[in-house]
Design a protein around this nucleic acid. Structure first.
Lengths: 110, 110
DNA sequence: GGTGTATATGTCGGATATGACATATATTGC
DNA sequence: GCAATATATGTCATATCCGACATATACACC
């Protein structure tokens, strides 16, 4: 649950309209978080595969190495806009994005 | 070209590294803008098909009707985060998002 | 043309993400 | 173990986005 929602829900004293509504909100949040993580992971995968350093990608984006590290770490202070900007900066297309959204999660190396 | 990039490029006096680099940046920008527009259009389509008003969707999002109007208008002051939050709030899934990204643009009614 | 409802546009103070930078922690090759 | 290089983490002032609100326009139906 991201900071914004946590604050909203806390402000409401956790009295959410109905269970169904709550579950629905959760599903929305989940989809959003999953989307972020999927793009984040795909970004790292593409960058590494291309042998590009975080600093080099940052330069291309006119951002900073630290921001790129945070993108790949799934840091919540990184917007989807920035994340997608970086993803596309690796040469990815909309179709690549679609693929990332439908593919099963690749198992994390042991 | 969005405000941020315009500013950056103007600040640099339009001296972009190379033609290839410039074209590549453009492609990135295009992909980002197209993604925004695709989600924006799909959002409106889903909302209308469901017979939900902008105000009702806004309430669900704990946002305002004016913001929803701007989302659907492709207003650049709306972040992709908010756009996707709204899209998912209509019950859409990641898979739906992927479909939106790959489908050909539906012709605008005359 | 008046009333009701939906959508669009503009502005605002406050909240949040931004790039820059400093610095810490891997990782790699010697 | 020690450089060199890559990546991670933390902080800051500023730019940008946020919800809220006011108001304008569009479109019904009467």
């Amino acid at each position: 649950m991201d900071a914004r929602k946590r604050k909203r829900v806390e402000a409401a004293g956790w009295r959410v309209g109905s269970a169904a509504e709550f579950l629905e909100l959760s599903a929305e949040e989940a989809a959003l978080v999953e989307t972020r993580l999927a793009v984040s992971g795909a970004l790292k995968q593409r960058r590494v595969r291309q042998g590009v350093t975080q600093a080099a990608l940052a330069k291309k984006l006119r951002s900073s190495q630290s921001r790129v590290a945070k993108m790949e770490a799934g840091d919540p202070t990184i917007s989807l806009d920035l994340l997608l900007r970086a993803f596309f900066a690796t040469g990815a297309t909309k179709r690549d994005l679609a693929r990332v959204l439908t593919s099963r999660r690749r198992p994390v190396a042991a």
